[in-house]
Write a protein that binds this DNA or RNA. Sequence first.
DNA 1: AAGTGGTCTAGACCACGTT
DNA 2: ACGTGGTCTAGACCACTTG
Lengths: 244, 244
Amino acid sequence: MKKVLHRPSLYMTARNAILDAIEEGEIAQNDRLPSEEALAEMFSVSRATIRNALQSMENDGLINKRHGSEATVNRVCLGLNMRIDEAKGFSDLIAASGHTPGEIYKTLERKAFDSKVAKKLQLKKDSEGIVLTKLLSGDGNPVVFLREYYPDTTLHKVPDLEDFPPDIYELSDLYFAKAISYTVREISAVRESESLLKAMKLKSGTGFIKMEEIHYSDDNNPIAYNETYIRDSIMKLQVVCRRM
Amino acid sequence: MKKVLHRPSLYMTARNAILDAIEEGEIAQNDRLPSEEALAEMFSVSRATIRNALQSMENDGLINKRHGSEATVNRVCLGLNMRIDEAKGFSDLIAASGHTPGEIYKTLERKAFDSKVAKKLQLKKDSEGIVLTKLLSGDGNPVVFLREYYPDTTLHKVPDLEDFPPDIYELSDLYFAKAISYTVREISAVRESESLLKAMKLKSGTGFIKMEEIHYSDDNNPIAYNETYIRDSIMKLQVVCRRM
DNA sequence: AAGTGGTCTAGACCACGTT
DNA sequence: ACGTGGTCTAGACCACTTG
């Protein structure tokens, strides 16, 4: 995977500067940003460039825009730390929610996928691949159990177990033939089972959230599949949806 | 709430025309759209306007864009019908997933909110408001149980029970002092309980998804709160997350 | 090398909110 | 009435993908 150093675009530079200024309290009076024209002058760029910056910030839930009046800082969304509509791995989510992430165990094996997994990945039955199993902890306690399926065609190189990055998106940048473009997550509830409790090294549990993830390349082909089990007593999953 | 008829913008017109053409198979050869320049010529608008249309389509997961190559139709996301990262009510979700939505019962009462609800809505304890309780069905079977809390300050007029629109976003447009701008949804898993099974008119259940929603106005004030219980055997909740 | 999308500018007019 | 963001144009150059 080629890595290129981009010259940052003007609008991304402006975006980062505005975000820093918000954090320092230097720019937003009562959480209200200066007008687009004023920002354009501050950064010596055109209004279109500032609009590009503000648009990307609104898409990420950092600010609100309203026709006729200045943009405002969105403290509500800025305070969320378990958003599953963002491309973050679970280690990052655990860390973002204020717990110390860790790995209780991790195993790697190569085998044929069962028909259910093969179907999710649009593969012929008995296609082979890598299966990574992980138990993640928050502050030392088991919270997330993961099983990750990587078809042989996906990985252009198989890293050693200890070289697997904790984040699948980073893994895709380093070792996938094609990087992950987007992920579809499907959520259901499951009762605790003997095998799950054993895998998570728990004696009992209340309810678990099950999350099935299919990761797609930018040409809409599935390239990886995960099953994740989450102890929801620790983690509350969040999603933001905006109108329009 | 004032209702104005907007002249549709050129980019929204182009967007809708492109979407129609995609559906009819008239525009995308092998799911690949014409170039931005070609589209601009087709609709007699500038390239910037077409880019605006395509950008909004990509934000909604309808197409993928790649630097250097034409945009492509995203059949994967187009096929999803239970996305909870879109501002849709549950009636719409049930309908979108191919079941016939219905209401098994619906009650309305006015009372003081308990401290948990008051806190979510940033209200003083014992603040009063309207509580709407609903049991929704898919193909006649109970699937979603809802309890919706509307503070007195939110509703500028309280509709009769039978006049409540099925969709909370529509309700907000018609009867809220300020419309809903965005919603934060928090997901957890719950075991079945006596009271929940009774409310849902079920004898037994497997697991339930609990979704707590706080609806915010565009000035980031919470204006409504819902608790929703979902029989996940019927409905799989979906979220799409894109990188960058 | 050619074609395509990404970024950027300067200027214009309109629609909305506030006063 | 005024200031603000929303839409739109025409033109330019750069970065990426493709043949």
